[in-house]
Deep mutational scan, measured.
Amino acid sequence: MGFKLLSKLLVYLTASIMAIASPLAFSVDSSGEYPTVSEIPVGEVRLYQIADGVWSHIATQSFDGAVYPSNGLIVRDGDELLLIDTAWGAKNTAALLAEIEKQIGLPVTRAVSTHFHDDRVGGVDVLRAAGVATYASPSTRRLAEVEGNEIPTHSLEGLSSSGDAVRFGPVELFYPGAAHSTDNLIVYVPSASVLYGGCAIYELSRTSAGNVADADLAEWPTSIERIQQHYPEAQFVIPGHGLPGGLDLLKHTTNVVKAHTNRSVVE
């Protein structure tokens, strides 16, 4: 069995187990497998329904001669939608809004960016022009300005110390501490036991640490421990890039980060 097929099978099995364990909360999309990078042309966006009122959005972007996937989250909030992270750029984010209108038909009224990198804030200006209120932590807003990236308009308070959590509509926002970046936030959907790890969490097929220019490698494993301790009931975990899975993604990420750190020390 090929690795790609095995990865998709694991996603399907995880979703099936969740649907059985929580039949009222989960209505997993039966329309197909989780979209992969090879299936999404740059400039297009796919939506994948995880649970009743919960979707991931998947886009792709060219970077350094390669094409990478990027995940975000959409959560229903009454007759409105909360968006977590842009679709990595203005063109993708405009396509995301169009796809949401086509498939869901509810307005996106608020959006949260989970850290300051372009795959999370690139497209904020498109959201703002569409009347979406954009939010991020003060740290993310400051770092985005320093980096020359787009800056969300509103500040999220109460997320300055490791372990801080605040309720934001249908989700809980959690600051686990520094990891992929010093400002990275985690998003949890309690009604569906869905954990969105953003770039602080890796997919299972990833074996290298990737972009760690703004990471705190020493603190990252401790931050992941905080996530595990705060959300032990999480059933569906979405990484910032690639295929979702279960809580095993947290341990896998820790292993990859520690291996990278150990290699760096040896070198």
Rank of each mutant, 00 (worst) to 15 (best):
Gly2Trp: 04
Phe3His: 08
Lys4Tyr: 10
Lys4Pro: 03
Lys4Glu: 09
Leu5Ile: 15
Ser7Thr: 07
Ser7Arg: 06
Lys8Thr: 03
Leu9Arg: 08
Leu10Pro: 03
Val11Leu: 04
Tyr12Ile: 01
Leu13Trp: 04
Ala15Met: 01
Met18Ala: 03
Ala19Trp: 10
Ala19His: 15
Ala21Lys: 11
Ala21Pro: 08
Ser22Lys: 02
Pro23Gln: 12
Ser27Thr: 05
Ser30Ala: 06
Glu33Leu: 10
Tyr34Cys: 13
Thr36Ala: 05
Val37Pro: 05
Glu39Pro: 08
Pro41Ser: 10
Val42Arg: 11
Gly43Arg: 09
Leu47Ala: 05
Ile50Leu: 10
Ile50Tyr: 10
Asp52Thr: 04
Val54Ala: 06
Ala59Trp: 08
Gln61Asp: 04
Phe63Glu: 07
Asp64Tyr: 09
Asn71Tyr: 04
Asn71His: 08
Asn71Glu: 09
Gly72Asp: 07
Leu73Ser: 10
Val75Glu: 03
Arg76Asn: 04
Arg76Gln: 02
Asp77Lys: 04
Gly78Asp: 04
Asp79Pro: 04
Leu83Cys: 11
Thr86Tyr: 07
Ala87Ser: 10
Trp88Gly: 02
Trp88Arg: 00
Gly89His: 10
Lys91Thr: 14
Asn92Glu: 13
Thr93Tyr: 00
Ala94Asp: 14
Ala94Phe: 04
Ala95Met: 14
Leu97Glu: 03
Glu99Pro: 00
Glu101Val: 09
Ile104Thr: 08
Pro107Gln: 11
Thr109Phe: 09
Arg110Glu: 14
Thr114Pro: 00
His115Trp: 00
His115Asp: 00
His117Ser: 00
Gly123Arg: 01
Gly123Lys: 02
Asp125Glu: 12
Val126Phe: 09
Arg128Ile: 04
Arg128Val: 10
Ala130Pro: 02
Gly131Lys: 15
Gly131Ile: 11
Val132Gln: 15
Ala133Asp: 14
Tyr135Val: 12
Pro138Gly: 04
Pro138Tyr: 15
Ser139Leu: 04
Thr140Glu: 08
Arg141Asp: 14
Arg141Pro: 15
Leu143Phe: 14
Val146Cys: 02
Gly148His: 02
Asn149Pro: 03
Thr153Trp: 10
His154Trp: 10
Leu159Cys: 15
Leu159His: 13
Ser160Glu: 10
Ser161Lys: 04
Ser162Tyr: 09
Ser162Glu: 05
Gly163Phe: 02
Asp164Leu: 10
Asp164Ser: 10
Arg167Glu: 08
Gly169Ala: 13
Val171Met: 15
Glu172Ile: 15
Leu173Gln: 01
Tyr175Trp: 11
Tyr175Asp: 07
Pro176Cys: 12
His180Tyr: 00
His180Gln: 04
Ser181Trp: 01
Ser181Leu: 01
Asp183Pro: 03
Asp183Trp: 14
Asn184Cys: 12
Asn184Lys: 01
Asn184Met: 07
Ile186Pro: 01
Ile186Glu: 05
Pro190His: 00
Val194Gln: 09
Val194Gly: 11
Leu195Tyr: 14
Gly198Tyr: 04
Cys199Trp: 02
Tyr202Ile: 09
Leu204Ala: 13
Ser205Ile: 03
Ser205His: 15
Ser208Gln: 12
Ala209Val: 11
Ala209Phe: 06
Ala209Asn: 09
Gly210Tyr: 15
Asn211Gly: 09
Val212Gly: 10
Val212Gln: 15
Val212Ala: 06
Ala213Cys: 13
Ala213Leu: 11
Glu219Gly: 09
Trp220Ala: 10
Trp220Arg: 09
Gln229Glu: 06
His230Glu: 04
Pro232Ala: 06
Glu233Trp: 07
Ala234Asn: 12
Phe236Arg: 05
Ile238Arg: 04
Gly240Tyr: 05
Pro244Leu: 13
Asp248Lys: 03
Leu249Gln: 10
Lys251Thr: 08
Asn255Lys: 02
Asn255Leu: 05
Asn255Ser: 02
Ala259Arg: 06
His260Arg: 07
Asn262Ala: 03
Arg263Cys: 04
Arg263Lys: 02
Ser264Ala: 07
Val265Ile: 04
Glu267Thr: 15
